[in-house]
Amino acid sequence: MTTQAAETPVAAPAAVRRSRLSLSVSLPVLWLGAAALATIFSAYLPMPDPFRQSLLRTLQSPSPTNLFGTDSLGRDVLARSILGLRVSLVVGLGSVLFGFALGGALGLVSGFFRGRVDFWISAAMTLILSFPPLVLAIAIMSYAGPSLGLVIFTLGLLFVPAFARITRANTLSLADREFVLAARAMGMRNGRILLQEILPNLVAPLIAYGMLMVAVAIIGEAALSFLGLSVPPPQPTLGGMVAAERANLLDAPWAVFGPSLFLFLTVLSLNVAGDQLQRRIDQREAAL
C-alpha cells in the first residue's frame, strides 16, 4: 500500500497542463506561420500572376479564380496582398532587428558604464523621442526617396530609443546584482561580463517587447506606403493597395478589404502572441 502511494507520479498534473496550448497562442502562431510560408514561397502558389493587368476584367468580385476579386487594373487582389504582406513582414522584422541591435547595444553600454557615456547616450535618445515619429519618418523618406532599405532604416531608427531605454533600465538593475560582482571577482573583463552575464539575462524580455514592436512597425510601414513613401511600385504594398483602390470602395470593397484583412490579422496575431509571451516571461522571472 504505502509503496504504491509513494510511486504516484507527482509531476503528472503539470505535464497535462503544459500539453494544452490555449487558442490565444495557437491561432496567432498559425496565422503568422502561414503568412511567413505564403510570402516566402509565393512564386510556387497556384495563383494568378500578381503583376498581369487585364483591362477586360477590372474590379471583378471574388470568384474561384480570383478569391479576393480583382483591382482597378484587373490584377488579382489575393496574389498582390501576399506580395504586399511580404514587404510588411520584411520591414517589420528588419526594422525591429535594426532597432534591437543598435538600441540594445547603446542601452547596454549606457546602463553598464553609467556616468558620462550614459548621459550622452540618454540625451541622444531623448532627442530622437522628441520628434513626432511619423513626421520624422515622412521627412526622411520624402527627402531621400522611397526604397526598401530606407524604410527599414527609418522605422528602425524610431525604435532605437525604446530599445535603448528598456535595455538600459534592465542593465542598471542587473549590474548591481551579486552575480556580476562574483563574475568580476572571478577576473572577468567588462566586455565579457556584458556579453556573458548581462546580455543573456536581457534577451527574454526584449524578445517579447520586440514582437509587439514588429506589429507597430508593420502599421508604420502601411502608413508610409499609403502616402507613397515606402517601397516604390510596381512592388505591391498593403498600404499602397488601399491607397490606390480607395476611390472604388463602394464598387469593389474587396480591393480595399483584402489587403486590410491581411494587415489586421497580422498585427492582431503579433499583439496577442507578444502579450502571451510577455506574460510567460514575467511568470518565469517571478519564479526565479
Partner: peptide, 24 residues
C-alpha cells in the same frame, strides 16, 4: 589584477541565491 582575481585570490559572497548567473 584581473589575472590575479579568481586565480590566486578568490572570493565567495553572502547570498548564494543571487551570486550565480540565473540563465547559465
Amino acid at each position: 589584477m584581473r589575472r590575479l582575481r579568481g586565480r590566486e585570490i578568490a572570493m565567495i559572497f553572502q547570498d548564494p541565491m543571487t551570486s550565480l548567473n540565473p540563465v547559465m
